[in-house]
Structures are given as C-alpha cells and as structure tokens.
C-alpha cells in the first residue's frame, strides 16, 4: 500500500533541493540552515498531514515549509529579507511562518518550538476540530530539557501532536552518539508510553508510511506519537559554519542521497525514464528560477519598519 504519490514525492524533493542549491549559489544568501539530504523526511511527513493540521519546525525549516506547500517565491523572498516574504522579510529562515498554509512556523532556538507546538496542539484539542500538530526537530534538540518536559505533558494530556525527530546525526559538529545516551531517539517517546518508531529517513515511502500510521494514531485521540527518521546532512550545519567532515566522507554520503535513491527506484520499476527524470529536474530549476526572480524583484522593507508590530 502506498501512502504517497511516488512521482509527486520526487517532484517535491527535487524542488526543495533545487531551491536550496539556488539559494546557496546566490552570492549574498545570508545565514541559512539547509536540509539537503533530509528532503525525504519533510516530504514523507507532510504527505500524512491534512489541510487542518499544522506543522512547526526548529530552525532547519526551508525544506519542511516548501514540502508543506508554502509558496516557494514567498519563502525565497522571506529568506532574503524581502517585503514579498510571507512575514515581510522580518522572520527569516529561523522564524518564518504561514499558518494559512498549515505551516505554523519555525523557532530557531533548538528545542524551543517543541512546547510551543504542544500548545498549538492543546488549542486543537480544546477546539475539538480534529486537527493535529506535527513538530519537526533535530537530534540536537533531544538533549534539551524542554523536549522532555513537553513529552511528559503531551502524553499526560493526550495532546494531538506528532513529534518527529529528523535525526541527521550531527549537532553542528557533535555526533549524535557522542551527545545522547539513549539507544534510539524514539525511545524518548516510548518512555512516556507513546506510539514510537524509528525509520529510515532516506526512504521517502517508508517515512510516509510511518507518518501515516503515526498521524492516524494521533488523530484517533490515542495520544501523541514519536517518529524518529534517521537521515543525513549533505551540507555543513549552516551556510556560515565550517564543514567538519572530509571530502571523502561527503562523497560517500552523496551515495545515500534520498532523492537519488527514490529516482533510481522509480527508474528501476519503469515509472520514469531518463528523459522524464531530466524534465522533472529542469521543471524544478525553472520553478525555482521564477521564485528567485520574484524574491530579487521584491524590495527590502524600509528602516521605519523596524518599530512596527513590536507590541
């Protein structure tokens, strides 16, 4: 049983990759946390969410926002600090949001958005509208006290929330195994009696299947769920952080790229031929070129904007 349109999933992942590559290529791209290597987590997770649901993330927000359907040109403008961004360019990568699109927002303090997400879930629970909340965070957040406090309260109150750990196995330079004592990060959810599972975060169909199971559990009112997706980070922590891994290591990581893997599978089973795949890559590049053009054309806010919307 498939939980995700395989071609649509590939298209979404290609779009995220093209977007981040275009952003990184721009000379002045600012301080960005890219998610190359983690596209399958965002796309697989989002496939399980409905229009009435909300997604929140930590600071590595670009891929998840795009996967959720926030317009790429508005994301690009936001990241570049332009007025055409969904938050008029004042939130940036770390804090952008578009609740109408189901992306309640990022909060770039590691672990900081987890309790916020539980609060949004409490609002859904009180409203009784059937909506759920998914919160995406990295393995780095798993050492943060706010996560543990929130897991406990969410379990106690049976909040409609899905905790998704995108375990890219590195917190800036610190390896996950050097930072966290638990065997599996999903054990953190299991400790509180949650539905908990660890899946291969490089397999978009596997992530989608697990996310659908988790979402069904949460939506059925059975309490929160904790999904760990083990992924890789193909770039350095941020666009300003030093890469700590060797060229050889990075080259090896590329062979695990979730997009390559999914594309190869679709070619192998005859769904796509070379030409179709190439066309999809070009379409993604064209779409992102449009997004970039929109962002480039959008003006910066005036300095007077600095005091607007403060209180």
């Amino acid at each position: 049983m498939t939980h995700i349109d395989p071609v649509g999933a590939l298209r979404a992942m290609l779009m995220i990759r093209a977007f981040e590559d275009a952003l990184a290529r721009r000379k002045e791209h600012g301080f960005q946390l890219l998610s190359s290597g983690e596209e399958a987590v965002a796309v697989g997770l989002v496939s399980a969410l409905g229009t009435g649901d909300q997604l929140l993330t930590g600071g590595r927000s670009i891929g998840p926002a795009l996967a959720r359907g926030v317009a790429p040109e508005r994301v690009m403008a936001e990241l570049l600090g332009k007025s055409g961004g969904m938050n008029q360019g004042r939130a940036g990568r770390g804090h952008m949001s578009d609740p109408q699109a189901g992306f309640f927002g990022a909060h770039a303090v590691v672990g900081g958005n987890i309790s916020i997400a539980a609060g949004v879930a409490m609002a859904r629970q009180l409203d009784g509208d059937g909506g759920i909340v998914a919160i995406l965070f990295g393995d780095g957040a798993c050492g943060a006290g706010a996560l543990h406090e929130t897991l406990n309260m969410a379990a106690q109150w049976k909040l409609p929330i899905l905790f998704v750990c995108n375990n890219n196995q590195l917190s800036v330079s610190t390896a996950r195994d050097a930072a966290l004592a638990v065997a599996n990060l999903s054990d953190l959810g299991a400790t509180f009696g949650m539905w908990a599972r660890t899946v291969d975060g490089l397999d978009v169909q596997g992530v989608a299947a697990a996310a659908h199971d988790a979402v069904r559990h949460v939506r059925d009112g059975l309490g929160p769920a904790f999904l760990e997706c083990t992924s890789i980070r193909l770039r350095s922590h941020s666009t300003t952080a030093r890469e700590t891994r060797s060229r050889a290591e990075l080259a090896e990581l590329q062979t695990h790229c979730p997009i390559r893997r999914h594309a190869a599978a679709l070619q192998a089973d005859g769904t796509l031929d070379d030409a179709q795949l190439e066309q999809m890559r070009q379409d993604a590049a064209t779409d992102i070129a449009h997004a970039m053009a929109y962002a480039e054309a959008s003006p910066y806010p005036t300095a007077q904007e600095a005091l607007r919307h403060v209180v």
């Binding site: 309640f104 539980a118 609060g119 409490m122 609002a123 929130t150 309260m153």
Partner: peptide, 20 residues
C-alpha cells in the same frame, strides 16, 4: 501542570498563538 515551567510557558505561548 507538573513541575515543568519551561514547557508550561511554552504550551501557553503556543495555545495563545493558536487563539487562546
């Protein structure tokens, strides 16, 4: 709430952002 000021204030902030 349990003794969990960080999450309690966070949950309140999230609920506030979501209309409460």
């Amino acid at each position: 709430t349990p003794v969990a000021e960080a999450a309690t204030i966070g949950i309140a902030a999230g609920a506030a952002a979501a209309g409460y």
